[in-house]
Design a protein around this nucleic acid. Structure first.
Length: 408
DNA sequence: TCTGGGGTCCTAGGACCC
DNA sequence: TCTGGGGTCCTAGGACCC
C-alpha cells in the first residue's frame, strides 16, 4: 500500500528563532555563528542570503558579502526548547515522527489521513500552528517515501508546500541533477559525472553491476535513488537504533603545541564525553583521539580498552596514552575525544568495593553539576580551562531523549 | 580573523584463528 | 609440502548528513 510521507524543514531555523526572540533583528540580514572566534556561519536569515551569505562561510567572507550583517552567537537552549515544541506539534498528527535533526523531521501520516481528511489538511494545520505559536515558517514536502519527501520540501523555500505524486515521479527525476538527492554528495556527484551520469534519469537507468563495481554496496542504492525508490520506514525515537558513539571536539582559540596544554583540553573533552556517556547509561571500550593540525590536515588514533569504561578519568587516561604514542609534527588546531564500542551499562556488575566507591563519587559529581550547571564541580586542572570549551550546538543535534538513548 | 561540531555508514588492510 | 580460504576483530580514513 502506498505510503504518505511528509518531510518538514524549518526555514533558516536558528536565524528565524533569533529574529523571533529579538524583534530588533527582524527584517535584517542575520547570521548565527558559533561562540568562539574561529567559527563559521551556522545558518543565516533570508535577508542575509540575498547578499550571498551561506552556511559554512567564514565570518570574514560573510562580512565581505554583507557588511551590515548582524552576527549572533548560537543559543543552544533556546533552539532546543523551540525544537521540542515543534516536535510536540508533529506528534499530534502521527506517532510516527522521525526527528532527523534539530530542525527537520519525517512524518508517516499514512494512517492519519482518515482522521484529518488529507495530507494537505495536515500540512496546513502543522504550518499554521507553528506560525501562530512560534512565529516560524517551514517548508513541507509530501511524497510516497522519505527520499522524495525530502526532495519535495527543498523545492519551495521559504514557507513552501510541495507534493510529489506517484504518477509524476519519473518525469520529475528525468532532468533532476543527481546532486539534489539526499545521499549524493560532492564526491559521489563528481564520480558519477565522470561516468557520464548527471541526471537522476540517467542514474536510474544505469547498469547496476557497473555502479556496484564503482561504489560497492552503495551502488545498488544509487540506482534506486535515481528511480526515486526508497523503502526505508519512518522510525520514531523508540524504534531508532541506539547511539553508537559519544564524542566531543573543539577548535582551540589558538593553535597549541605543548603536551601540558593539549592534556588540559583532553581532560575537559574527556569530562564532557564521560558525563554524556553516564547520562545515557552506556560504557564503551574504544577511545579515539582526533587531532587537526594548523594546516587543517587531521587524523585519528583509537585504542581498545581492557574493560568497559565511562568515567571521565578513565577516558582521559586513555586519550593521554594515545597522545603519548604520537609524534606531533605541527601545532594543534582541533582536539577530539570519542567513546565507541558502546554497551548498555549494567550496574549490577559493579562488585568490587573500589569500583562501587568510584561510581558513587562520579555520581555525586554528576549530580552536583546537573544541579549547579556544567563544570560547577570539577578537578583542579579543569578549572584552568573553564569556559574555554566550545558549546556550539550543531544542526544535527537532537533534543535530549529524542536520540534513542534509553536513560538508565 | 580562513575554514564548527555532532553523528552514521562503508571500505580496506592486517592480525589472528581454524 | 610451494602456497587455501573462510571468518572475525581491529584500525584508519573517507563520504555523507544537518
Amino acid at each position: 500500500m502506498a505510503r504518505t510521507i511528509m518531510h518538514i524543514d524549518m526555514n533558516a531555523f536558528f536565524a528565524a528563532v533569533e529574529q523571533q526572540s529579538n524583534p530588533a533583528l527582524r527584517g535584517l540580514p542575520v547570521a548565527v555563528t558559533g561562540s568562539q572566534q574561529r567559527t563559521i556561519i551556522l545558518t543565516c536569515s533570508y535577508e542575509a542570503r540575498a547578499y550571498g551569505v551561506k552556511t559554512g562561510m567564514t565570518l570574514y567572507e560573510a562580512r565581505q558579502k554583507c557588511p551590515q550583517l548582524q552576527l549572533v552567537a548560537a543559543n543552544n537552549r533556546l533552539y532546543t526548547h523551540v525544537s521540542s515544541q515543534i516536535i510536540k506539534i508533529f506528534q499530534d498528527y502521527t506517532p510516527l515522527v522521525e526527528v532527523f535533526s534539530v530542525d527537520e523531521a519525517f512524518l508517516d501520516v499514512s494512517g492519519s489521513l482518515g482522521i484529518f481528511g488529507s495530507a494537505q489538511r495536515i500540512a496546513y494545520l502543522i504550518k499554521s500552528r507553528i506560525k501562530a505559536r512560534l512565529g516560524l515558517t517551514c517548508s513541507v514536502g509530501v511524497a510516497p517515501n522519505k527520499l522524495l519527501a525530502k526532495l519535495a520540501s527543498d523545492m519551495q523555500k521559504p514557507d513552501g508546500l510541495t507534493f510529489i505524486y506517484p504518477d509524476k515521479i519519473s518525469a520529475l527525476l528525468e532532468e533532476l541533477p543527481i546532486g539534489e538527492i539526499c545521499g549524493i554528495g560532492r564526491k559521489t556527484e563528481q564520480k558519477l559525472n565522470r561516468m557520464g551520469i548527471s541526471t537522476c534519469g540517467q542514474l536510474g537507468r544505469y547498469s547496476v553491476p557497473k555502479l556496484k563495481a564503482q561504489f560497492g554496496i552503495v551502488g545498488e542504492r544509487l540506482a534506486l535513488m535515481g528511480q526515486g525508490v526508497d523503502t526505508a520506514p519512518v522510525l520514531s525515537p523508540e524504534q531508532e537504533a541506539e547511539v553508537k558513539t559519544v564524542g566531543h571536539s573543539m577548535t582551540l582559540r589558538r593553535d597549541i603545541e605543548s603536551r601540558e596544554d593539549i592534556a588540559r583540553f583532553l581532560l575537559q573533552l574527556a569530562e564532557m564525553v564521560g558525563r554524556r556517556a553516564r547520562r545515557y547509561g552506556v560504557t564503551g571500550r574504544t577511545v579515539t583521539l582526533t587531532i587537526r593540525y594548523a594546516d587543517f590536515s587531521s587524523f585519528s588514533r583509537q585504542q581498545l580498552q581492557a574493560a568497559e569504561i565511562c568515567r571521565s578519568e578513565e577516558i582521559y587516561r586513555a586519550a593521554l596514552k594515545i597522545l603519548d604514542s604520537l609524534f606531533l609534527t605541527q601545532p594543534v588546531r582541533l582536539l577530539g575525544v570519542r567513546l565507541s564500542n558502546l554497551q548498555r551499562r549494567d550496574r549490577q556488575l559493579l562488585l568490587l568495593p573500589e569500583e562501587r566507591r568510584q561510581q558513587q563519587l562520579t555520581e555525586s559529581l554528576d549530580q552536583a553539576n546537573d544541579q549547579y550547571g556544567e563544570f560547577a564541580v570539577m578537578s583542579g586542572s579543569l578549572l584552568q580551562v573553564k569556559g574555554k570549551g566550545s558549546h556550539v550546538i550543531s544542526p544535527a543535534w537532537r533534543p535530549e531523549g529524542i536520540r534513542n538513548v534509553k536513560m538508565s
